[in-house]
Measured scan of single mutants.
Amino acid sequence: NKFNKEMRNAYWEIALLPNLNNQQKRAFIRSLYDDPSQSANLLAEAKKLNDAQA
């Protein structure tokens, strides 16, 4: 399933972002599970926040 693969990839990328705190990571990951079709958008948002907090 395409969404499962995208979701799994996004999950690990988000989990490993160095500048997000655990609460932020959990919120993004919860959103991934709520709507796997938004994986790419959620990952992009997480990366933006990660960069902003660098």
Results as ranks from 00 to 15, higher is better:
41 N>A: 12
53 Q>Y: 09
26 R>K: 05
24 Q>E: 06
22 N>E: 12
14 I>F: 04
12 W>S: 08
37 S>E: 03
54 A>H: 13
27 A>C: 05
33 Y>L: 09
13 E>I: 15
22 N>K: 13
17 L>Y: 06
4 N>M: 05
25 K>S: 01
20 L>Q: 00
4 N>Q: 07
6 E>T: 05
29 I>G: 03
5 K>W: 05
20 L>C: 01
51 D>Q: 11
8 R>D: 04
22 N>H: 11
42 L>W: 12
42 L>G: 01
6 E>D: 06
8 R>T: 09
43 L>D: 00
44 A>P: 01
16 L>A: 14
2 K>Q: 12
12 W>P: 00
31 S>F: 14
8 R>M: 14
13 E>P: 01
10 A>T: 10
36 P>S: 05
11 Y>H: 08
26 R>E: 03
4 N>A: 04
51 D>W: 13
3 F>H: 15
17 L>H: 07
30 R>H: 05
8 R>C: 15
16 L>P: 01
2 K>C: 15
27 A>G: 06
22 N>G: 11
1 N>Y: 01
41 N>S: 11
17 L>D: 01
41 N>P: 11
11 Y>A: 12
20 L>S: 00
48 K>G: 08
44 A>M: 13
9 N>G: 05
52 A>L: 09
27 A>L: 07
14 I>D: 00
54 A>P: 09
18 P>A: 15
40 A>H: 08
40 A>N: 07
16 L>H: 14
38 Q>D: 09
20 L>G: 00
12 W>C: 04
15 A>R: 15
30 R>E: 02
29 I>D: 00
45 E>V: 13
25 K>F: 12
25 K>D: 00
25 K>L: 05
21 N>T: 11
52 A>H: 12
18 P>I: 05
20 L>I: 08
43 L>K: 08
48 K>V: 06
1 N>W: 01
44 A>L: 15
35 D>Y: 08
14 I>M: 06
31 S>K: 11
34 D>K: 12
30 R>S: 05
10 A>D: 01
11 Y>S: 08
27 A>Y: 14
42 L>Y: 07
13 E>D: 05
29 I>K: 06
16 L>E: 06
32 L>V: 05
40 A>I: 09
28 F>A: 02
40 A>Y: 12
8 R>G: 03
25 K>I: 07
21 N>E: 09
17 L>Q: 04
17 L>M: 12
3 F>C: 15
29 I>V: 13
42 L>K: 04
30 R>W: 09
13 E>N: 13
52 A>T: 10
11 Y>Q: 11
36 P>F: 08
49 L>A: 07
9 N>A: 15
46 A>Y: 03
15 A>N: 13
10 A>Q: 02
32 L>I: 06
16 L>T: 09
49 L>R: 06
29 I>H: 12
48 K>H: 11
11 Y>K: 14
49 L>M: 11
54 A>V: 13
41 N>V: 07
